[in-house]
Design a protein around this nucleic acid. Structure first.
Lengths: 191, 191
DNA sequence: GCTATTTCTTAAACCAGCTTAATATTTTTG
DNA sequence: CAAAAATATTAAGCTGGTTTAAGAAATAGC
């Protein structure tokens, strides 16, 4: 049960049978169909989510009209609106499945309780959060360093699995481009 | 000794006298004059730095010519190139003082040793890293949501202390604007 | 205080990427 | 399979913000 989660955690800390059981008990598994919402604008983001299988996107509504995607999450990725999750403030984000997905969720009360019961998990999450900070430093660097065309090409090379699984207009949104411009870039760079 | 650091950690975890001594022993204090470097491009970023007093900036060189600032750090902020620090890879960044500064640094070996000796610190850094992730989610949201003019005005309102202490062209760089455009915005929005 | 250096301003020409609007293609659903 | 919905393309016109180049003002060093 929760095979991907347990094997992911095991990469960073030593887990005995007993700890595995404790972890399994704190996470609530849910199956979602494509386009179901885990969070909607205005709600407090009550849970931290782990993607066992599938794909999620997080987005907000820009100028009251367009969806601006800020994050994707696939297998073995964590996702939440941390501000909302930590401070219990209403979130400006939607979190929605892009495909049918199997998600493990832990609400903030359980999260604190789990960290209390199993202090080893402090270490796991410290390491995961550090890696997340590293990744976001890199993302910001690319945003400042690359033109939008270069940013798009770099993304295609770095994450080819996304191109397969996520519609082009969502990738455009995530990169801060218009779908029309991505279309132009594809034409230019394919032929 | 290390008064700001200890009081910052105490906000998140309970520290007894003994733990305080352990922490103090792991951090190396250094005074830097304005414009001294803590890290230069090509070096491995060996330490995680805490600003007791002063101001740092982190930047890289864009198109081999212009300095692109990605982060500032003032009193009670942590700064490092996490990719370089964690994976011991050469860094593309410079970390430099903007003012005379008093900095506490811990290299990665000492960091691991401290976390071993004082597992409570896993919790402190887990919490700090979570807050850092929250802040960077918010930063990316603003980058996508606001025009460059709005982004500049928002920054001025949110961090007035920066406007006092950091030259305008560095703020322009941090926000991804040209200094010329910031000049134009000031003129437009002041009068 | 004087000089050099750093920082800031002004203004005109320019362009990467957006907007708009219409059409075409692909996928989903009954 | 047919119709509807979702996704992708094309092309022309436009604009927010950059580039370039010069000079002005402020700050720091001696």
């Amino acid at each position: 049960m929760h095979a991907n989660l347990i094997s992911h955690i095991s990469k960073y800390i030593e887990l005995d049978e007993c700890s595995i059981e404790v972890i399994n008990k704190y996470f609530k598994p849910t199956d979602y169909k494509k386009k179901e919402f885990l969070l909607q604008e205005g709600q407090v983001c009550k849970s931290l989510h782990f993607v066992e299988k599938g794909c999620l996107r997080m987005y907000f509504i820009n100028n009251k009209t367009t969806e601006q995607i800020t994050q994707f999450a696939m297998e073995n990725w964590w996702i939440t609106d941390f501000f909302s999750f930590l401070d219990k403030k209403p979130s400006p984000y939607f979190i929605q499945t892009v495909e049918n997905s199997h998600i493990l969720s832990i609400d903030s009360v359980s999260y604190d309780a789990m960290l209390q019961e199993l202090p080893l998990m402090e270490r796991y999450f410290r390491i995961i959060m550090q890696r997340t900070v590293a990744a976001s430093q890199l993302r910001v660097k690319y945003m400042y360093e690359l033109s939008k065309e270069e940013f798009y090409l770099h993304f295609c090379n770095s994450f080819p699995q996304f191109i397969q699984r996520v519609p082009q207009y969502m990738i455009a949104s995530y990169l801060g481009l218009t779908p029309e411009y991505v279309s132009e870039l594809r034409k230019k760079n394919l032929s």
